[in-house]
Design a protein around this nucleic acid. Structure first.
Lengths: 121, 121
DNA sequence: GTATCTGCAAATCATTTGCATTCTG
DNA sequence: CAGAATGCAAATGATTTGCAGATAC
């Protein structure tokens, strides 16, 4: 794996934010620094960065995938009101699959509902 | 909401199986009973059935959504070896978001790894 | 009878890919 | 230099949608 300015810019962007971004949003953000970067390059780098465990992907009921530069285990909450994605701590215990002899390499917890603000309305 | 033979066939199919199917797989299965059903109808009914909480959707790192006629709370395990999706009980406790005043309407837990069989190889 | 649902086909839209060129080590 | 990575544009594939005709209630 080579260090290119494109890959560096993408990773720097994701790490600089405690937020979750779609490929297109990342593309738009990085384009401010590298105007001629292509969307294909963004996707290829995101895939590579996931493989290298530098970032994680967040699959929700949205049609697009979000990417997160914060890789410590945590849960996500998708607010159906304001569409915001929130982070929450994830309490890991002996998981059912591992008790059954399965090898758990990864786990995703996503809550859906209304955030505190939207819930009050 | 009207009871059509298409909607009934889709729901019957999903309820008759303890398994998870993509829209295309459901389309293929239901076509054996209703040969001229269209994929668009399958998607429209799946969306409706989800809204009515008759079925649930399972989002994974796959590019397609899976549908599940078993609606009681449970976790999913996606085996990266054989690609099978397994059900596991889900131990629900006071979730972090609800402690924070968020309204949790739904929650999805997906594990990734190797099932017992693939893990042995 | 009328609003809802369906089949069909075309449109979307996120993501992937082929290829010639450029860049990193 | 050689293998990787990039930009561009075209391809893919799941999902959505417009519309005219069929169906449920």
């Amino acid at each position: 794996m080579r260090v290119t300015k494109q890959r560096t810019a993408i990773l720097d962007f994701l790490r600089s934010k405690r937020h979750h971004y779609s490929a297109t949003q990342i593309y738009d953000a990085v384009r401010e620094k590298i105007p001629n970067i292509s969307l294909g390059t963004v996707y290829r780098n995101l895939a590579q960065l996931i493989e290298d465990k530098e970032i994680i992907s967040v699959e929700t009921s949205d049609k697009c995938v979000y990417y997160d530069g914060f890789t410590a285990d945590h849960a996500h909450f998708v607010c159906e009101g304001c569409k915001e994605i929130f982070d929450f701590p994830l309490i890991l215990e002996d998981s059912e699959p591992s008790k059954a002899g399965f090898l758990v390499e990864n786990q995703r917890v996503v809550y859906y509902g209304l955030c505190a603000k939207c819930n009050k309305k």
